[in-house]
Every structure is written in structure tokens, then in C-alpha cells.
């Protein structure tokens, strides 16, 4: 199986990464060589095997839904790339 240029551009779109045609070609080559290597897995019969999702196979612990840290708006907004002091700001989304 090989991944074509159209698929590469689709994955880039899903990944929210803009790529030009030159980059798409490079990625096509890289990803195909990586997937060629990954295809080795198809030799293994896994019909009767349960997937292992996590090594810590215990159920996650529950905790009370309590506020522990409050009034940290300034801290939270400190690293925001936009200058606005009260909110996170993004380009206009409604016309």
C-alpha cells in the first residue's frame, strides 16, 4: 500500500499543518518509507489478541470535583501570544 500526494495533503489538513507542494512531496517519500517498515506487522496473526492500551491496567482513580487553585487569571493569560489582558484572542470567527 502506498500513500499518495492527495492523501498527504488530506492528513496535513487534518493535522492543521499547512504544507506547500514541495513539502508534500518530501513527506510522501518519508511517510511511504516509514509505512513500508510498519507493514511488517501484518505478518503477525492478532485475531485472538486483546489490545494493550495502557500498562497501568487499573481503572482510573476518581476524585472530587473541587476547585483547588483559584484567581489565577493573570498567570493563565501571561503566556498568551495576544496582548489582550482579559481574554484569549483569536482572529475573527463571525462575520
Amino acid at each position: 500500500m502506498s500513500i499518495d500526494l492527495k492523501t498527504i495533503k488530506h492528513i496535513a489538513k487534518l493535522s492543521r499543518i499547512s504544507i506547500d507542494d514541495k513539502k508534500a512531496k518530501e513527506l510522501e517519500e518519508d511517510l511511504n518509507s516509514i509505512f513500508e517498515f510498519i507493514e511488517a506487522l501484518n505478518k503477525v496473526d492478532t485475531k485472538k489478541v486483546d489490545p494493550l492500551t495502557s500498562i497501568a491496567e487499573t481503572s482510573l482513580k476518581l476524585r472530587g470535583d473541587e476547585v483547588k487553585t483559584k484567581n489565577i487569571r493573570e498567570q493563565i493569560l501571561k503566556n498568551s501570544p495576544d496582548e489582550n489582558k482579559d481574554f484569549f484572542v483569536v482572529p475573527k470567527v463571525v462575520e
Binding site: R16, I17, S18, I76, N79, S80, P81, D82, F88, V90, P91, K92, V93
Partner: peptide, 17 residues
């Protein structure tokens, strides 16, 4: 949006990308 490097874009999606 919340931290780190940001590039410009004409809309939200292109800003992300």
C-alpha cells in the same frame, strides 16, 4: 492561542495551520 509561538493567518484555521 493560549501560549507559545503564533503566526498570523487570514482566519482562525489558517492561523492554526
Amino acid at each position: 492561542v493560549k501560549y507559545g509561538y503564533r503566526s498570523e493567518g487570514e482566519n482562525l484555521i489558517s492561523m492554526y495551520e
